[in-house]
Structure formats: C-alpha cells, structure tokens
Simulated assay, not measured.
Amino acid sequence: MHSQITNIVVSKNDTIFKALELLDLYALRIVLVVDDKNHLLGSVTDGDIRRGLLKGCGIYSSIEIIMHKSPYFVEEGTLTNRQIFEIMREKRYLALPITKNGVLTNIVTLDDLIRKKRKENPVFIMAGGFGTRLRPLTDKCPKPMLPVGGKPLLETIISSFKEQGFYKFYISTHYLPEVIHEHFGDGEKFGIQINYVHETDPLGTGGALSLLPKTDIDLPFIVINGDVLTNMNFEKLIDFHNKNNAVATMCVREFQYQIPYGVVNSDQNIIQSMTEKPSYFFDINTGIYVISPKLLSQVKAEFIGMPTILEQQIEKKQIVSSYPLHEYWLDIGHIEDYNRAQRDIVNLDFGKY
C-alpha cells in the first residue's frame, strides 16, 4: 500500500475539520472515506468542503454529509500507469484511489508517475526455444508468441518491464524468428527499443549471451526466459545485485516436494524413526538472472546452459548471489501451465511498481 494512503483516509463519522487538516497537511487535494473494512465509501475535496460550508454545515459536522459518494477510482490491474497518468492529467487529479472488489488497496499520485525514471539496464529475453512440450500449439508458433490473456506471452513480458521503466531490449531468436520480428519490429510502436540476436544453431541460455554486443552493454542486465510469467519488481532485483557486488544473480523460488509414502529410517535393520509423507523444501531456478557486463567477455559461442556458466564463476571464487522471488511466477513448460496462465493472467497486476 502506498505510504501516503493512511495519511488521507478517514471514517464517515470523522469531522469536516479533520478533512480540512489532512487536505492542508498532505496537499493531495483529496481525502478518502472508508468503512471499518476499508471499503471505499466516498471522497472529499476542498471544493466539497466549501460547498458544504456555504450550505450551512459546521466544521465539526460529520464528513458523511459533504462527501462525494461516487468517487472516481481505478480497479486494480485494469489500467497501465500510462493510462492512469492520462486520466489524472485530463481530470487534474493529484491522487487517485486504487480498489480491488470495492476495497481500497492503494493510491497512485501524479508525482509517482512523473518521477518514474527510465531504467538504462538492458533486458535480454530468450525466445529461441522450440517449445516441444507444448506441441501442437507450437508447431507454427514459437512458444513466447502463444496468446495468454488475448496477446502474446512475449508482449506481456515486455509490457511488465516497460511499466517499470525498462526500454532497452535484446531478444534471442532461433525457431520461427519471423513471427517475433513481424509482431514487434524494432519496438517503436511499443515505445521501446528492440535489437535481435539470432542463434543459427541453438546455443542454450548461456551460450546466447555471446551474441550480445559487448561494447554496448556497460550496466548489469536482466536475462529472462521467454516462457516466464511474473509480476516481480525488477528494480529491486537490480538493486540487490548491485548491493552484493555480484558477477551474476539468479532468482530462486522455494519449491515444496512431498514424498507420497511413509519414510522409514533404519540403522542395521533396526527402525529408528518413521515419518509419514514428509515434505522437503528446495530453492529452484526461475529462469531470471542479472548478469554483470564483465561476464560477457568470458562467454563463448557454444551450447551451454546458464547454470553451467554460473557454476564456472563459483569455481573461480566469483560472487554469484541468489535472489528470493516471492511474487507471482509461472514457468509455462507444459499444457497444464499454459492453461493455468490463461486463468491467472486475469488477476495479475503488472503496473503497480
């Protein structure tokens, strides 16, 4: 929740005087009225207060008397930051409430949107795979271009980065590259920059790094598989990588594995203990990385996976950090995953950062 939201929220039983105080203190031109379960009931502006006073209301009267009972709000996840910005500019709002099923969850301010800085860190998307486990869907369509929620998965991935200020993209292609080229072009129509690197022969997630223009990349860059759906905060990931002074960072996610049987521990055929269907927890690779520029010069044009490259760096005593990913994440590797993505995409918010 936005840190300023608690500063401008009142109860319908609060007084007009309190609303005046908040309007004066926080200069957002609006106070939001909620019930005890945080449902948005109304809003109050200085104009509402002025009209109420002219009608004879006292400053210690209930705020419910003057509040606007149909306030303008945005349902969470329905609009991009750009669309919200256009609404606020047109209506001259300084702040706009965000709700989910009627419950106030956030507030976006015009200052937030204006101050969002473009991120100079490039993004490298691996989109060259054959997607064999998703056949026949991928017989004539590369996996990253399969529709999820009415548009290609790759477009959703790019949009999630764009909403967070990233605009420099490299896309690695191999299988049916013309489908990707035709849809995205150089990225201009999407308000971004796209450069393509083509794998004549498959190079794997690690070997594809060798195709990047080393002299053009002087900042840590994000690498992400083209079949990953997530709404994670990529800026925090970059900050974490820099703070650890790492040569590479791998995003990991906790995975629970439950053995479907009772486990028996014995010593010389004497049972010591038994555990019924125990669960074990592991950190798994999410297919999202941050790579420092100095690593690029060490990658050769050969088939190699990213984990192998990171293992080589660990052997060289270089810092390879792990970043715990707690937000939504889905690796679309099988038909069941693809079907789940179609269901999940409806409620995902990619523009909240």
Rank of each mutant, 00 (worst) to 15 (best):
N231A: 09
G207A: 04
T215R: 14
F234V: 09
S210L: 08
V228Q: 10
L229W: 02
I224E: 00
L203I: 02
D239C: 13
H241I: 02
F234E: 08
F221Q: 05
L212V: 07
I222A: 01
E235Y: 03
P220A: 11
F240T: 08
A208L: 08
G204Q: 09
I222P: 01
D239N: 15
D239S: 15
M232Q: 11
P220E: 10
G226F: 03
T205R: 02
P213G: 07
F234A: 11
I222C: 00
I222R: 00
V228M: 13
F240P: 04
N225C: 13
F234T: 06
H241C: 04
N225Q: 15
T230L: 03
I217R: 09
G204R: 03
G206F: 02
L212H: 08
N225I: 07
T205W: 03
I217M: 10
D216K: 15
N231I: 05
L212T: 07
N231L: 10
P213T: 08
I224N: 00
D239K: 15
G204C: 11
K214H: 15
T215L: 12
D201R: 13
F234R: 05
L229P: 01
K214W: 11
A208K: 01
L209F: 10
L211Q: 06
T215H: 14
L219Y: 14
P202G: 11
V228P: 01
V223E: 00
F234Y: 14
N231W: 04
G207T: 06
L237D: 07
L209W: 05
I238D: 02
G206N: 06
N231P: 03
A208C: 12
F221D: 02
G226T: 08
P213N: 07
L212Q: 09
T230S: 13
F234W: 10
K236F: 09
D216M: 15
N233R: 13
L237E: 08
N225R: 13
T230M: 04
F221C: 09
G204H: 05
S210D: 03
G207I: 04
L219P: 03
N225G: 15
D201I: 10
G204N: 07
K214C: 07
H241F: 02
M232H: 10
T230F: 05
L237V: 11
I217A: 10
F221H: 06
G204K: 04
N225A: 15
I222W: 00
A208S: 14
T230Y: 06
K214G: 05
F240K: 12
I224D: 00
G207S: 03
G204E: 09
E235K: 12
D218M: 10
S210T: 10
L229E: 04
P213D: 10
